[in-house]
């Protein structure tokens, strides 16, 4: 039998495109279109109940000059950087332990790490209210031990409580990419390092650390990008001092009824987080390149 025309089913590349097209269309419809709309809105202006559709930059001007917005941007950036740093620092040893000393129980360890995800995100954040509150677990315990005589108020409704809660929410997402990059390290490389005279710590610093860097960078970015725009955690445990940029964006789209301003703040936050993530990736690379020598 001879076939002169080949059905599209036979073409590897077309078949691939067909397979991914539902995802691509979905992403286009639900990501690209809304983002494009937000960008459009950010150049318009709210005038009482209607929207003035002439192109202007006044929203961006406000976003970068008004002290309230600047303060919230800086705080969001600061909180997300702190959260990413603390999360990665806490996740790294766990990932290292599972990868290098997990032995037969690696899968069990990974399962244990994902157990908290069996409860909802909201519930986990709410739990921190119980832990950090006025009559919460931490305060009660410290009082009972006699270490303090009145509850520490600074635990809840501050930037600190936001950081603590976010670190807890994201640490598993940081452990996994670091673990995966460590699993890919050929163990004979570490042995070769030892054979060439390295102490255990030195071979870690010169081999494991630089080779697990891709995982560290992904972990950092995975944590940093969503936390900068996190809305739930600062709403629930942040109070006034823990408010972040997402809260004011919500206010603009909500009570304030100023969609163009909210849109401009959203776009600014996106640009800022991309820049910040890019800079962090470069800095981490430089840092580890310096360390391995």
């Amino acid at each position: 039998m001879k076939r002169t025309t080949r059905s599209w089913r036979d073409r590897e590349d077309l078949r691939g495109l067909a397979l991914i097209s539902p995802t691509v269309l979905y992403a286009l419809a639900l990501l690209l279109v809304p983002v494009a709309m937000v960008i459009l809105y950010s150049f318009w202006k709210q005038s009482f109940m209607t929207i003035d559709h002439t192109f202007r930059l006044s929203n961006y001007e406000a976003a970068f000059t008004q002290p309230i917005y600047r303060a919230l941007f800086l705080r969001s950036l600061w909180i997300s950087l702190t959260v990413s740093l603390v999360t990665v620092v806490m996740a790294y040893p766990v990932a290292w332990y599972i990868s290098f000393h997990g032995g037969r129980n690696k899968n069990l360890w990974l399962f244990v790490i994902t157990v908290p995800f069996l409860t909802s995100y909201l519930l986990r954040v709410m739990a921190w209210k119980v832990v950090l509150g006025h009559n919460g677990v931490v305060n009660s315990a410290l009082m009972w031990l006699g270490l303090i005589h009145q509850p520490i108020e600074a635990l809840l409704y501050t930037a600190n409580s936001v950081v603590i809660t976010l670190v807890h929410s994201w640490v598993a997402f940081a452990i996994l990419p670091i673990f995966v990059s460590m699993e890919k390290i050929d163990r004979s490389l570490v042995e070769a390092g030892r054979d060439l005279g390295d102490s255990a710590f030195r071979s870690f610093r010169r081999i494991v650390l630089p080779l697990s860097l891709p995982g560290v960078i992904s972990a950092f970015v995975i944590v940093m990008i969503p936390t900068i725009g996190d809305y739930v955690t600062p709403t629930l445990v942040g109070g006034r001092d823990g408010m972040m940029i997402a809260n004011i964006i919500q206010t603009n789209f909500g009570q304030a009824q100023n969609w163009p301003m909210g849109a401009a703040l959203s776009v600014s936050a996106m640009v800022l987080v991309s820049l910040a993530a890019g800079i962090m990736v470069l800095l981490l690379r430089l840092l580890v390149n310096g360390v391995r020598r």
Binding site: D186, S188, L189, A192, D195, L196, G197, I207, P210, L211
Partner: peptide
């Protein structure tokens, strides 16, 4: 290993990729 007067050529060669 790090304190022995021996050195090894590994089966996989273990060339440091970075």
């Amino acid at each position: 290993a790090n304190a022995r007067p021996t050195n090894m050529v590994f089966q996989s060669y273990a060339i440091f990729p970075h």
